[in-house]
Design a protein around this nucleic acid. Structure first.
Length: 291
DNA sequence: AAACATGGCAACCGCGTAAAT
DNA sequence: TATTTACGCGGTTGCCATGTT
């Protein structure tokens, strides 16, 4: 029963690829394609490699039009924004950046972008701590300092998909015109109900649940909805803290961003709360209105 | 100049899901 | 229907280059 074994794992070569191996793989795929069967490929070419390894080498390195290094500011912004919206779904993020691989983006995030953003955050926090002390009354200052934790951070991966009936009703409301507008219609295409993602004092729509194709236009729409609609925000807060919703604790997957369907791995993994404000400037919320 | 630390990146590992038998 | 494996993905590791002491 079952399929035949993939390869003799004990006897396949591991480690860095030689130029000869690269040339063999590249030339074969360019002429014949993968044939949809990576496991059979190395045998056909005469490579002593696991099919899985061939696939990785092709996708991350040999494939045409691959870009390495030199991420532009625009690309950085897209990566940060998407990370905040959907978490560490690198393949989806890579789909928004032509020529970039998920591996490349993941590496870039882990080695540079994350640190860059955290450094920026520390700088902002330092300056933010000073301004209220100079300009505000003590009671206002206290309010200001409490604000960041007033709305909890939630898992921004699939964990933020709010399945509860009440929140579904809110989505229905969007469709019925309470906050209806042209961009929403474009984004939604009249298909599925988008899932809502709550983050700090902004709401996002999970792009995975909009349509099946990721386009720049769609991303613009998503960003559009990132600038939260005030009435909807108030209603969401009511649901979160009012009797009907059962409080924050009843919501599944409350916690850190970037732990999609699995363990958040690195001890230094960055929380949603750490970096979200660096990408999207805070919108004017009822908190700020109190100032 | 040598030893050590750090950063960047390619490749591997392991898991969840789909598909083949 | 059960079992087994391929595929695709995200997380992690290990090597090499570069920087610092």
């Amino acid at each position: 029963m079952g399929r035949a074994p993939c390869c003799d794992k004990a006897n396949v070569k591991k480690g860095p690829w030689s130029p000869e191996e690269d040339a063999k793989l590249k030339s074969y795929i360019e002429q014949h394609g993968t044939g949809g069967n990576w496991i059979a490929l190395p045998q056909k070419i005469g490579l002593n490699r696991c099919g899985k390894s061939c696939r990785l080498r092709w996708l991350n390195y040999l494939r045409p039009n691959i870009k390495h290094g030199g991420f532009s500011d625009e690309e950085e912004n897209i990566i940060c924004s998407l990370y905040i919206t959907i978490g560490s779904r690198w393949s989806i993020i890579a789909a928004q950046l032509p020529g970039r691989t998920d591996n490349d983006i993941k590496n870039y995030w882990n080695t540079r972008l994350k640190k860059k953003l955290l450094a920026k955050q520390r700088k902002q926090q330092a300056s933010r701590a000073l301004i209220p002390m100079i300009n505000q009354q003590p009671d206002q200052l206290q309010y200001r300092l409490e604000q960041p934790s007033a709305i909890p951070t939630m898992g921004m991966s699939r964990g933020a998909n709010l399945e509860d009936q009440q929140l579904k009703k809110m989505v229905m409301k969007l469709e019925q015109g309470t906050v209806q507008d042209q961009a929403y219609q474009m984004a939604n295409c009249g298909m599925n109900y988008p899932y809502l993602c709550l983050a700090q004092d902004q709401m996002f729509i999970d792009p995975m649940n909009l349509t099946n194709h990721n386009t720049p236009t769609q991303w613009e729409n998503i960003k559009y909805y990132g600038t939260m609609h005030e009435p909807l925000m108030a209603e969401l807060e009511e649901l979160m803290y009012g009797d009907g919703f059962g409080g924050v604790e009843s919501c599944s997957n409350v916690g850190m961003a970037g732990s999609i369907g699995g363990a958040a791995t690195s001890a230094e993994s960055t929380s949603w709360g750490d970096i979200s404000s660096l990408v999207y400037p805070p919108v004017v919320s009822n908190y700020d209105a109190c100032q």
